[in-house]
Amino acid sequence: MNHSSTSAYGLWSLVIINSLIFIFFAFSFFKPQTKSDWRTFGSFSAFIVALFAEMYGFPLTIYLLSGWLTKKFPLVDFFTHDSGHLLHTLLGFKGNPHFDVLHILSNILIVAGFWLLSSSWRILYKAEQAKTLAISGPYHYVRHPQYVAFILVMFGFLLQWPTFVTLIMFPILVWTYVRLAKREEKVVEQIFGNTYIKYAKDTPRFFPKDMSFINRKEGHSRA
């Protein structure tokens, strides 16, 4: 359904509501405790706010591209909400953008990201309580499933609503998460020594290589 330009943007109440919903979801699944956790959560929250600010508040990206867009697509009103899904239009998709392949893939990535975030936290919480190393569940496949989860959610949102701000933020945040992951690994290695060294040797940092369902024994500190 198309919205008029007056109703598609300037809806700051929707910016606040949608931002709070997704930030609350992330908070409830991630439950930040350390300074590193809060830094991760804060950067993700900033991404979410920037996204919804353009989705419902002020369409900065569309304004900046308006000259080129009107020449390339003279019959399209890019200040309606549906046309704000730029990839849908630029790639020549037809019909409702909320049901195209990009939007469906986006929803899958977002749901998968939040599911991974929740699953990882449960394993990690039990491991921290037992003061052991978490190597079961998502930690059986990658050493930093929670960072992978945040990246999946952000990439999912980029597929349905890319903006200049979020496109700039995304690689910066990925780089930040990689740095945080390496820093945390040094701390965990000091705590668990050879146990963590062997785990790190067998388990990739971000990209799983072993998709078997053979679980390892549980335990862990944050890695």
Rank of each mutant, 00 (worst) to 15 (best):
H3K: 06
S5L: 02
T6Y: 09
S7N: 14
A8R: 04
Y9D: 07
G10S: 02
L11Q: 14
W12S: 11
L14Q: 13
I16A: 15
N18Q: 06
N18F: 10
N18M: 12
S19F: 09
S19I: 09
I23V: 15
I23L: 11
F25H: 05
A26F: 10
F27W: 13
F30A: 13
K31F: 13
S36H: 06
D37H: 06
R39M: 15
G42M: 14
S43F: 13
S45N: 07
F47W: 07
F47G: 09
I48C: 11
A50W: 02
A53G: 04
G57C: 03
G57L: 06
L60M: 07
L60F: 13
I62E: 13
I62C: 11
L64Q: 08
S66K: 12
S66Y: 09
W68I: 09
W68E: 05
T70S: 15
F73G: 02
F73W: 07
F73K: 03
P74H: 08
F78Q: 14
D82R: 13
L86V: 14
H88D: 12
T89C: 02
F93H: 12
F93K: 03
G95I: 12
H98I: 03
F99N: 10
V101D: 08
I108T: 08
L109R: 05
V111R: 00
G113C: 04
G113Y: 05
F114A: 11
F114N: 07
L116A: 05
L116V: 01
L117N: 12
L117D: 08
S118G: 01
S120I: 06
S120Y: 09
I123A: 12
Y125L: 11
Y125N: 14
K126Y: 04
E128Q: 15
Q129I: 12
T132Q: 15
G137A: 04
G137N: 07
G137R: 04
G137Q: 01
Y139D: 13
H140N: 15
Y141E: 01
R143L: 02
R143W: 02
Y147Q: 14
Y147A: 15
V148P: 01
F150R: 07
M154I: 07
F157I: 00
L158Q: 14
P162E: 03
P162N: 02
T163V: 02
T166Y: 03
M169W: 01
V174P: 02
W175T: 13
L180Q: 13
L180K: 03
A181H: 10
A181L: 10
K182F: 14
K182C: 12
R183L: 10
E185F: 11
V187W: 09
E189L: 12
I191Y: 07
G193S: 05
N194H: 02
T195Q: 05
A200M: 00
A200T: 00
A200Y: 00
R205Q: 05
F206R: 08
P208H: 10
K209W: 09
K209F: 11
K209H: 12
M211P: 08
M211L: 15
F213C: 01
G219D: 11
R222G: 00
A223W: 15
